[in-house]
Amino acid sequence: MNRINKAFEKENSILNIYFTAGFPDLRDTIRIASALENSGADMLEIGIPFSDPVADGPTIQKSSKQALDNGMTLALLFDQLVTLREKVSIPVLLMGYVNPILQFGIEEFCKKCKEVGIDGTIIPDLPVQEFLDTYKHHFEEAGLENIFLISPNTSEERIETIDAISNGFIYMVSSASTTGAKESVQDGQLEYYQRIQDMNLKSPRLIGFGISNSETFNIACEHAHGAIIGSAFINQLEKEPSDEGIQKFVHSIKKQ
């Protein structure tokens, strides 16, 4: 059984934290991953930086640019991840736009993920149908769970299709927006959370985009199996990138 599935069996308020590989410093990847696990995060998403991140707001755009300026590449990231499983035992996903992965080669990418102990992938601009028709077998052979997104505008029929082909979790985008920290939850969002909860999908759901503090995290946990925090953590890394800063941030979201 994949580490992702095990995590959902054990815990129903999953805190999944995203950070951009190569930010703030090129060699921070393993240190940050390890500090997050030690602080109590349940799952990690490591972002592969891309020059044109259209689904991202200003915070992740900026971290991606800095990571690329620092010299991060997908090949270098895999080199860094060779020691991942010596330090980190929680599930780890790679999240990135499709072009760098296509240039690396999708088959080779999946093989490398398996080698270094990656459990899943999130590729927002790889269409569902394209994945199913062309690439699915490479991911399966590597034991990778590819995660699909749904948004408030996704039709019920399509959500059911996505649920049927998902084997890790469903990434629920919290509102019609690009990524970015928000202070509170809006009314329309709760209706959407409830509507999806009432669908009784087979896959667990994590809510992401706009989750930034214990308030937004707790509301997400009431309606799903946990939440994903990205931009708010990137802001934290910018202010206080030390292990202590990371611990303070995680504890502010999820009491131990």
Partner: peptide, 12 residues
């Protein structure tokens, strides 16, 4: 060609 878009744009 194709339509390589994030899910948020899929309905549009």
């Amino acid at each position: 060609g194709g339509a390589y878009i994030p899910e948020m744009l899929y309905p549009n």
